[in-house]
Design a protein around this nucleic acid. Structure first.
Length: 262
DNA sequence: ATGGTTGGACCCCAA
């Protein structure tokens, strides 16, 4: 089973790129963030024509929005309005083999890494706390969970182009990284991509639109993640980053990332 | 040290 996560930054604008992803990678499941489409305008026909019979989405006008596109039946679909901000940043569903998929779009957190000066940063930190509490309280033994999405945090030194220069930049500040480590510890989550790419190697999933030639300057960050519970560890066969999508025509600033799980 | 770009709505906000 191949599962892909992608912050698509407008689903309707990038249906052609989504089609390319489906044709080249043939995933069973695609989890999207920043769909930027309210539910009444969701391009259901287009998505079904790409082969996804089972679709779950939670969207709003202009901002946020998440979706799960699946070739396998989805049951027990859940959408949480985390911290009651009215933001569509979470959707979850259960697969036929009982594996649960949680798709998150964690708040970016604004520019100033200070909760007293910046409400958005406060929201981001509390959002991660909510995730920790949710998984701690709701986990049942032997449950298989895939938790993925745009976490908007690059936790490791080699998840950013310059650890030193980004220590004060929202996405790589010590306080966020600590929160993310708390979350990782909550269920002993496995960071799928770092099983295959050692911590000593640079690995990115996002490059700013403000770079003229993103791969030349290569000032990337790994903001997108796929984590699995330890009981899925032996089933994890591959983890990929589809870098080419960053230099496609009209790209998202994030590229799709994927895992193969038996 | 600063500004650079994009998407979607509206005359700017969030990223």
């Amino acid at each position: 089973m191949k599962i892909i996560s992608w912050n698509i930054n407008s689903l309707r604008l990038r249906l052609m790129l989504l089609e390319r992803l489906v044709i080249t990678q043939n995933p069973d499941i695609i989890c999207l963030q920043e769909t930027k489409v309210q539910d009444v305008d969701f391009p259901m026909l287009e998505v079904q024509n790409l082969g996804f019979k089972f679709v779950a989405f939670a969207g709003e006008k202009s901002y946020n929005g998440v979706a799960i596109l699946s070739k396998l039946p989805l049951t027990n679909i859940k959408k949480y309005d985390i911290l009651d901000f009215g933001h569509k940043r979470h959707i979850a569903a259960t697969l036929p083999d009982e594996t649960i998929i949680h798709n998150f779009y964690v708040p970016a957190g604004g520019d100033i890494p200070d909760v007293k000066l910046n409400d958005k940063f406060d929201f981001k930190l509390k959002f991660i706390d909510w995730m920790v509490e949710y998984f701690t309280k709701n986990y049942c033994q032997n449950q298989k969970i895939v938790m993925l999405g745009d976490m908007n945090i690059a936790p490791l030194i080699n998840d950013v182009w310059s650890h030193k220069q980004l220590l004060g930049v929202v996405s790589h500040t010590p306080i966020e990284v600590k929160k993310m480590m708390n979350l990782q510890a909550s269920l002993n989550w496995i960071d799928a991509h770092r099983i295959f790419v050692p911590d000593s190697e640079k690995l990115y999933s996002w490059w700013s639109y403000r770079e003229l030639d993103p791969f030349k300057s290569n000032r990337g960050r790994r903001l997108d993640h796929i984590w699995i519970t330890p009981n899925l560890g032996n089933n994890l066969k591959k983890a990929e980053v589809f870098k080419d999508f960053r230099i496609a025509f009209k790209p998202s600033d994030h590229v799709p990332i994927g895992v193969d799980i038996l």
